[in-house]
């Protein structure tokens, strides 16, 4: 032992070098600090605020369950939450169903310039999200691309009104917007599949369909599960899409949360709604992961 190790600084330094967790946390510390300041502290404030009540401009900071009781009692909150879950559920299913064939094609049938294909698939992400929503407004609109061309072809007499300002419009827009988030994880899990397993299945007499159901699909499920969570979790709380293309019947829970913080000026209610949404999404996701895990274990 050298002299320096006897000083406090030296001892700390030695501890730092010896202890792996400490070195790990030191490496993480910038991120941890940001997480603490940007996530944990606001989250605690949000939880505290959700038990307060609003009186015109003042917060009443005595803790009460008023906001949560209201969420349970008033059908509006329940219906908007259910609608949000239904819309993003539909969007998740649609996105995964549309993304799977694309990812499958690139993983199994493209042999040269795979990278170019992947980049092309993420092309929608190169433009601003807001621009894409407005593009859908133009496509789905009353005088939009779909209605105008169908009417021009004489297939329609009156424009289809359910296309825009409806839950359908929200599902379509979200599905397009989140496609890349589904394609990439599914592609990765398909790409990883050992090709010799497929050959073995063929040698043992499986046709293409049986081989897909017996080998490819189960092995690619981790990608599908990751993709569904990646899409479901953020879309439940999407605000801008329903605000722009949803219309009165396509409004989602995030729109209601926004007005609590703005026009209605009831921040505690907004906080309680945000937390309720968070808890429900977490519960659904955990349930989904648990079921998926059981399912994939059976498959093996």
């Amino acid at each position: 032992m050298t002299q320096t190790h006897d000083t406090l600084r030296g001892r700390l330094y030695a501890f730092f070098l010896r202890s792996e967790p400490v070195r790990g946390f030191a490496l993480l510390s910038p991120t941890l600090l940001i997480m603490l300041a940007g996530m944990c502290v606001p989250f605690v404030i949000l939880v505290a605020m959700s038990f307060w009540t609003q009186h015109v401009f003042e917060f009443d900071t005595t803790l009460s369950l008023t906001n949560y009781n209201e969420i349970v009692d008033k059908p509006m909150y329940r219906v908007l939450l259910t609608r949000s879950l239904a819309i993003s559920g539909a969007c998740t299913v649609a996105t995964v169903l549309l993304a799977y064939p694309m990812a499958y094609y690139v993983a199994f049938h493209v042999h040269r310039h795979k990278m170019v294909w992947i980049v092309l698939m993420t092309l929608p992400f190169w433009s601003s999200y807001l621009l894409r929503v407005f593009a859908w407004k133009i496509i789905l609109g009353y005088n939009g691309a779909i209605n105008a061309s169908f009417m021009g072809l004489g297939w329609l007499e009156k424009p289809l009104e359910f296309l825009l300002y409806s839950p359908t419009a929200v599902v379509i827009t979200l599905t397009h917007a989140w496609a890349a988030f589904a394609i990439l994880p599914i592609y990765v899990s398909l790409e990883k599949i050992d090709r010799s397993l497929l050959e073995a299945a063929t040698d043992l007499g499986d046709g293409p369909v049986k081989r897909f159901i017996g080998v490819t699909l189960p092995l690619s499920l981790p990608g599908v599960i990751a993709a569904s969570l990646l899409i479901f979790i953020p879309t439940v709380g999407d605000f801008v899409t329903p605000a722009l293309v949803g219309g009165p019947d396509g409004a989602m829970i995030a729109n209601l949360i926004q007005v609590q913080f703005a026009r209605v000026n009831n921040w505690p209610m907004g906080a309680a709604l945000s937390l309720a949404m968070m808890v429900i999404i977490a519960a659904i996701s955990l349930l989904y992961i648990w079921t998926a895990r059981r399912f994939t274990e059976y498959g093996r």
Binding site: K74, P75, M76, V79, L80, P248, D249, A251, R263, V264
Partner: peptide, 8 residues
Amino acid sequence: FEQIKAGF
């Protein structure tokens, strides 16, 4: 009014 717009 927010409640009315949401359909309730």
